[in-house]
Design a protein around this nucleic acid. Sequence first.
DNA 1: TGTGATAGCTCG
DNA 2: GTACGAGCTATCACAC
Length: 607
Amino acid sequence: MLSKVKSEALHVKPKVEATSFQSILLDDAKILMNVIDGLEEDAIVAFDTETTSLDAYNAKIVGFSFCVDEDMAYYVPISHNYLGVGEQISMEDAKKALIELLKHKIVGQNLKYDIAVVYNNFNLPRIDIYADTMILAWLLNPESSVGLDTLALRFFNHPMIKFKDVVQKGENFSTVPLDSACEYASEDAWMTLKLYHKLQEMLEPKLLILAREVEFPFIHTLLMMEKEGIKVDGAYFETLLLRTDKAIELLKNEIFSLCNATFNLNSTQQLGNVLFEQLGLPAVKKTKTGYSTDENVLKELLDKHESISKILEYRELYKLKSTYIEPLLKLSKTSPESRVHTSFMHTGTATGRLSSKEPNLQNIPVKTELGREVRGGFVAKDGCLLVGVDYSQIELRLLAHFSGDEAMLEAFNTHKDIHRQTALRLFGEAEADAKRGVAKSINFGLLYGMGPKKLSDTLGITTKEAKSYIDGYFATFPTVRKYLTSIEERAKEVGFVETLLGRKRYFDFENANGMQYAGYLREAVNTVFQGSAADLIKLSMNKIMATLVDDEAKLLLQIHDELIFEVKEEKAEAFAQSVKEVMEGIYALHIPLKVSIAIGKNWGELK
DNA sequence: TGTGATAGCTCG
DNA sequence: GTACGAGCTATCACAC
């Protein structure tokens, strides 16, 4: 029950600069509903959940907090579980309260998590997101830390109560006493509201628009993808594991016998010892701690010892087994309907891209035959097909768009093979096909701010030759050079770069040494393309998500320039076409956007 | 037994 | 000494 002081607190007028606040425990359903009914219709409500787990899909809700003015915040206990626990709100009443509360303008810190928790614990209809402070802070500076504790310190010099100080080791939030839970949880909601107002003031209008029109709706897009998950074929991975285990065992024995030594093949230290000391092979590269044994080094040694090719093969197989096959097999067994749910990190990169973790589904192998077999284990459910759509050469198209280079624009506008066209301009008709690979490497290199050293490594030529290729390129495409230089000049002048939609990334040139300085210039150039490509696919994903018809098609994955859907078999072809149209028409540029389509029963077939 | 750094590999 | 952006696994050294 509320104390008298707390009841009076309900009527305190908000102050402009609150430095402290009251935390109020709402443990009576009637009073809870009264508080919520008393909110202004257009009130901005900071909202936070407390749960039993960081994993939103296994988390049971323990309570929630909210804050509407900076004088006080409320905590609603639902399922704390310890001997002698006080009054709490039933799940049924909590649901009723949440339905009303979440009709307001909801602000949160990482709302993707809290909304997933609410969806999973109560079967609520779509919750609209008003703002997310984590995303606002990320847009303000995508390389800064965006955790609530850090932001509270940074913007208000306020040390937050630490989770560790509230929750005993090995326990979860359900065992936290109601009074300390109330203090902790309401502080989160209170700080979130303060941060919202602060960030609202600090962000320029362009970034607030990007937030409202792209990033906030995108939270819902990600939520739906994560919730859906993708089906994996456990039996398939079981077989694959047996096969790789056998092959690994065989290779291991061959290598030991060829090297005349038994050692831990996974230890680069021990391998270096065997190769460069016992066998006396020439060491070409060093690491901080000893000999390098990476792929490039081993390839150099291929014709020097019979074991090398086996070691490379072993590396490939062991990687597949330990990083992909075993973890995916385990997940297939533990997840309902054998569907794995990645976690997309909305604020995970400095460029605007997503990242994916636990498991990372954005780096599933594709480049080798064996690697592609892993993709075969990602399947469509019965009656469905996987549809893959892919923006082709989106970053290079953006280079053509931004630079306005006539030759590049022409190549794209007449739907030519861009790499061959580049080779044609550089080397002439006779050599165009032979030098396509060189042109492709240069085109890629441009987007990364390459130097002759790396290009020569990539192409297996001398640094001198690489330099002449690059010089030749810029002589042929002077507009491209001018544009790339202008990115660098502008970055040095203002200290940041911007993407197509105005996303920013800052560089501290003033406090950089030579190497950092050069690194910043490369990052500045690359961010424009990588970040603008990220902008475009986010626009597409939001638009597609808004038009998805129930159960006919689901968006499952994004892999930077590619989307994977699960679609009813009979709808797959038409659906793919409609998605292609949306994606190609998502933004008017000086070049056409091109999307390619692939359809199959599993991910391995999508090529 | 746990943690952080390092090396190496996967993807776009 | 210079090609961008990510995450995961294993080893190793060191602390407790």
